[in-house]
């Protein structure tokens, strides 16, 4: 029985959502990049203003439909629209930022409902470039009531992104087994 998983990539601007989807999508993702003028926030040239969309066919016939969110809260209407029907969220953080947890805090709340009902994993990028360790993220999340495994990743590497996806799918499956909702499988 094959199944489709709609998954979101969320997190602050520049954390690597667009990069992550491009790293694993079977074909070139649909992109909505616009020229970034908010250089104070992040120096990158392009920023996502709609959403990224990529697909991955898994062994066994399951398919992933991946949506990369814009990071800035002025685009929070996209977060809401895209959350409908999603089964999990990969939250990315950028450890090289001056205050990575504050950046995370600004967008994680919008996905707590999705995370609580389904699944969330956290990927911390540039782990070696900041003063926080993976444990600091874990503690911060736990203190806010989030249940999410945290991984140190470089989303430019396909295997790292697949690791996040794997953890997310495991979480989805575990929760469904616990909730006895296996009949919802297509």
């Amino acid at each position: 029985m094959s199944r489709e998983y709609k998954l979101l990539f969320a997190g602050p601007m520049g954390a690597g959502k667009t990069t992550a989807i491009a790293a694993i999508s079977d074909s070139a993702p649909i992109s909505t990049e616009a020229r970034n003028t908010d250089i104070a926030q992040h120096s990158k040239a392009q920023t996502t203003v709609g959403f990224d969309y990529g697909e991955v066919a898994l062994e066994g016939g399951d398919r992933l439909r991946l949506y990369g969110m814009p990071g800035q809260s002025r685009f929070d209407f996209i977060w809401k629209v895209a959350s409908a029907g999603a089964l999990g969220v990969v939250m990315l953080a950028d450890n090289s930022r001056p205050d990575p947890l504050a950046d995370l805090s600004a967008c994680i709340d919008a996905f707590t409902e999705l995370a609580a009902a389904h699944a969330m994993v956290v990927g911390v990028g540039r782990g070696g470039e900041g003063r926080l360790g993976i444990d600091d993220y874990g503690e911060w999340l736990a203190a806010r009531g989030h249940v999410a495994p945290v991984f140190s990743v470089d989303v430019r590497r396909r295997d790292d992104v697949l690791l996040l996806i794997d953890a997310l799918l495991n979480q989805i499956e575990t929760r469904e087994l616990l909730a006895g909702t296996t009949e919802s499988r297509a």
Partner: peptide, 21 residues
């Protein structure tokens, strides 16, 4: 206006993505 500015940029970008596709 600020809200509409963000919405407008998103929708136009999605429209352009559809055309490219």
């Amino acid at each position: 206006a600020a809200r509409l500015a963000a919405l407008a940029s998103s929708m136009l970008a999605l429209g352009a993505a559809a055309l490219r596709e």
